[in-house]
Design a protein around this nucleic acid. Structure first.
Length: 420
RNA sequence: GCGGAAUUGGUGAAGUGGUUAACACGCCGGAUUGUGGCUCCGGUAUGCAAGAGUUCGAUCCUCUUAUUCCGCCCCA
């Protein structure tokens, strides 16, 4: 038996409707913020991700889908969306344009991970990237945009956890201080933290095992190592968020795992999402260094990415979305071959007029067709029979009131449209 | 990459080392000679994730593999 690859899903049925619903909502809201849709390749040169996401990050070290194409080029299935968008921005020299570029994307990403609920190898994210402005206004807008989308889906108990890493100077100062502080206490930390100490010391801060240890409680805080400019900048972001009425909590432990972040970093969680599950719905931050890192000029970037699959998991448990299904306007019933000809013609006319129309494809009896019509929640039934057709009439039954009337066949389409 | 649990039909599931794998929903057919949704009757897994082993005999025991779920790592 052939089956789908590990960590992938088939999206169909009510799931597909939910994905469609979320995507449509994203499109609508993005439009009102005037973000442009961008679609970048699903595979890019491996080098792009090594240089953007970072050689030392776990994503690149052990989670990418790499392959050699037939021209012996090293390719990687995109593990995240930012790198491709930034690459495109640089490649097309959009930094030279007079305006800020505001992009949003919505597509599949690939990471070779151990799958769990809310963690797939092929997963779907939407996200935004704002390129070319360092104004704290952008930080606040990006965070609020993500927040407002989740809010529009009626996901409750949202919380934004926010922190700042500061500029390069702040970040380096802090890193040095942290390393100096941790080193003598290294033996008191867990095995994973000893490894992190070598690869990415900042990540020790959000270790769950050592979270309650005295060592971490007394560790230096990023906020104390900010340059004055970086601090003022962060305070400004928070002020704007207050103004936009976004619930946030400054959490000095948020550091993020991708190497390209500086200044603002944040994540949005849903607190009542069955607690143990993957509760981070989206995350992002500012990445001013990244553009130069990828051979662009000095520029600025800020964005977020949001996991649609996780959103869908939450929506599926909400009463609001329990009965989502496509409703059929009209079900056309026939039995004989002659009636079928009328049916075919009528169905086409209805469909071309925008009526969602279904019929029988299995030569079922009338009883079976009634059953199918009910399964489809058809609002109207059109029952064809030879006797009436010869008089130019068809039976139209309102499937809610159960009232039935005979309508002139030339007026059926208008009648249905008029009643929908 | 590491640790743990699970896997029975279209679905929810019960069950046992030994002839026909319960029950329910769904679906199909009939009672109802072309207007159903109620009721009644009948049908619906040559099969218990896949493969190998133990056994006279395994869905049930053992091993391997796969997948799913949970925890860790990490992350959306």
């Amino acid at each position: 038996m052939l089956s789908k690859p590990k960590g992938t899903i088939d999206v169909k049925g009510s799931d597909a409707l939910l994905y469609e619903y979320v995507s449509n909502l994203v499109n609508t809201i993005m439009a009102s913020y005037n973000y442009e849709y961008i679609r970048t390749p699903i595979f890019e040169s491996s080098e792009l991700f090594h240089r953007s996401v970072g050689e030392s990050s776990d994503i690149v070290k052990k989670e990418t889908y790499d392959f050699l194409d037939k021209g012996n080029r090293n390719m990687t299935l995109r593990p995240e969306g930012t790198a491709g968008v930034v690459r495109s921005f640089i490649e097309d020299k959009e930094y030279a344009l007079p305006d800020v570029k505001k992009y949003y994307y919505n597509g599949t990403m690939y990471r070779y991970e151990r799958p769990q609920t809310g963690r797939l190898r092929e997963f779907t994210q939407f996200g935004v990237e704002v390129l070319g402005s360092n104004d704290p206004l952008v930080d606040a807008e990006v965070i609020s945009l993500q927040y407002k989308i989740l809010e529009a889906l009626h996901i409750d108990n949202l919380q934004v956890n926010i922190n700042t890493l500061g500029d390069a100077e702040s970040r380096n100062n802090y890193r040095d201080a942290l390393v100096k502080y941790i080193e003598p206490h290294l033996d008191e930390l867990c095995e994973d933290c000893k490894e992190r100490f070598k690869t990415n010391p900042l990540r020790i801060l959000d270790c769950k095992v050592d979270a309650d240890s005295e060592v971490l409680k007394n560790a230096p805080k990023t906020i104390d190592y900010l340059t004055n400019d970086a601090k003022v900048r962060f305070d400004t972001v928070l002020k704007y968020l207050d103004l936009l009425e976004i619930d946030y909590e400054v959490n000095p432990k948020i550091v993020r795992g991708l190497d390209y972040y500086d200044h603002t970093v944040f994540e949005v969680v849903s607190l009542d999402n069955n607690e143990t599950r993957q509760s981070v719905l989206g995350a992002g931050g500012r990445y001013n260094k990244l553009i130069k890192e990828l051979d662009g000029p000095e520029s600025y970037g800020m964005g977020f990415a949001c996991g649609i699959d996780r959103i869908i998991n939450i929506l599926k448990e909400m009463d609001l979305y329990k009965n989502i299904k496509r409703e059929v306007d009209c079900y056309v019933m026939y039995v004989s071959e002659e009636e079928k000809l009328y049916a075919l013609d009528l169905i086409q006319s209805l469909r071309l007029n925008g009526v969602i129309c279904e019929t029988d494809y299995l030569n079922k009896g009338l009883k079976g067709q009634f059953k199918q019509a009910d399964r489809l929640n058809a609002k109207y039934l059109i029952i064809l029979n030879n006797e009436d057709l010869q008089k130019g009439l068809v039976n139209v039954k309102d499937n809610v009131t159960k009232e039935e009337e005979k309508i002139d066949i030339s007026e059926v389409v208008e009648y249905i449209i008029g009643n929908l």
